[in-house]
Amino acid sequence: MSGYLTTHVLDTARGCPAQGLKIELFAIKDDSRVRIKTLVTNADGRTDEQILPAKSFATGTYELVFHAGAYLDAVGTPPEAPRFLDIIPIRFGMSEAAHYHVPLLLSPFGYSTYRGS
Rank of each mutant, 00 (worst) to 15 (best):
1 M>V: 13
2 S>N: 04
4 Y>F: 15
8 H>M: 14
13 A>P: 05
17 P>S: 07
17 P>F: 13
18 A>K: 03
18 A>M: 00
19 Q>M: 14
24 E>T: 06
27 A>G: 04
28 I>N: 02
29 K>L: 12
29 K>Q: 14
30 D>H: 12
34 V>L: 03
35 R>S: 05
38 T>C: 09
39 L>C: 07
39 L>D: 14
40 V>G: 00
41 T>N: 07
42 N>T: 06
45 G>F: 08
46 R>H: 11
47 T>C: 15
48 D>Q: 08
49 E>F: 01
50 Q>L: 08
51 I>P: 03
57 F>D: 00
57 F>R: 01
58 A>S: 06
59 T>S: 11
60 G>F: 01
62 Y>V: 14
63 E>R: 11
64 L>Y: 04
66 F>V: 09
66 F>S: 00
68 A>P: 07
68 A>W: 02
69 G>N: 01
69 G>W: 04
70 A>N: 09
71 Y>F: 10
71 Y>S: 01
72 L>S: 07
74 A>Y: 06
75 V>E: 08
78 P>D: 13
78 P>Y: 13
78 P>H: 04
80 E>K: 03
80 E>L: 10
82 P>G: 03
86 D>W: 07
89 P>L: 09
91 R>I: 13
92 F>T: 03
92 F>D: 08
92 F>S: 07
93 G>D: 00
94 M>A: 13
95 S>T: 14
97 A>Y: 07
103 P>N: 11
104 L>A: 02
105 L>S: 09
106 L>I: 15
108 P>T: 11
108 P>E: 02
108 P>S: 06
109 F>Y: 02
111 Y>H: 03
113 T>E: 09
113 T>W: 14
114 Y>T: 15
114 Y>L: 12
115 R>A: 13
115 R>F: 09
115 R>T: 10
117 S>E: 08
